[in-house]
Amino acid sequence: MSNRVEAITMDIVEAVRDVLRKHEVTFGEYRAGVGHMIKTQEAKELPLLIDVFLNSTIVEIENRNRKGSHAAIQGPYFREGAPHVEETLAIRDEDKDQPRMVLRGSVTDLNGRPVAGAVIDVWHSTPEGRYSGVHGDIPLEFYRGKITTDKDGRYEVRSIMPVPYQIPNQGPTGALLETYMNGHSWRPAHVHYWVHAEGYRDLISQAYFEGGKYIEDDCCNGGGKEFVVSEDYEDDLRVMKVDFKLDPAVAAAQAAE
């Protein structure tokens, strides 16, 4: 492991050095960059900054070894301990008049055989773009839960629609994206999934809404068109049909060797 750490570390350092040489970075620019990193650390945003730029690359690498459904970024708002639910994720009373959706689909193996008893963690934002158990005083049990596939590998649960939201943008990460890079700090509306099943490789994924804002320029490079679900309705319910095809666990072990 130490040899691998050394090799990766030195390759990162040399890659950075190459960029500095390519752009002939001045001493003043270098010190300004170091100062920005210090501000990022002081604001406790270093994990946020790294995830914004690098999480999607790790997912890209991991997907090279997947034969089933591709993974997407996890994001920082997953929380352990979400309740098991059957029909509906818990919704605050003040949000019950919001547009509704139904999440449904199936979990199968690589040959299309249903995976019964798979547990799927789902979570998504509130109508204000916040997350339960993370922001303010929203209890953990709202807008997230664990659903279990039936004997045919199918799942279904209802909730309200999430919204696009800005990642924390009042600190140095937001300044880098919006001021220094002339970009933005918005993520498209999305639903998170984490599929667990005995004997299979875990799958972390997301689903985006066709026609939604920021899908093409997600500030976190979330995944793109592959994860966009076509617009479909049943009465007033937005249908988010997402099927998952799982790789066997043994394949994951071999890929890691």
Rank of each mutant, 00 (worst) to 15 (best):
E128L: 04
G68K: 04
V13N: 03
R64C: 06
G133D: 06
S56N: 13
D121L: 09
V25Y: 03
V13E: 12
Q98A: 10
H84D: 11
V115P: 02
N65I: 01
W123E: 00
V122I: 10
V25D: 03
S2R: 15
S69Q: 06
E14M: 15
R144Y: 01
R130F: 02
E94V: 12
I38C: 08
A90D: 12
E86T: 15
A71H: 10
S2I: 11
T108S: 10
A43D: 14
H124M: 10
M37D: 04
G35T: 04
V107H: 05
D51Y: 10
H70T: 13
A82H: 12
D51K: 08
R113L: 02
T126V: 01
V52I: 11
K96M: 11
G68Q: 06
V5F: 08
R79E: 08
I91F: 06
E6A: 03
I73M: 13
S56H: 15
A43S: 12
T40M: 08
R66Y: 06
R92C: 02
M101E: 02
L89G: 05
D51T: 08
S106F: 08
A116E: 12
N3S: 12
Q41N: 06
H70F: 07
E60M: 15
A72T: 09
T26G: 07
V122R: 05
K96C: 01
I8E: 07
P99M: 07
E60A: 14
W123L: 04
E87S: 13
R113W: 03
L89F: 12
V5C: 04
P139G: 00
L103I: 10
D137S: 06
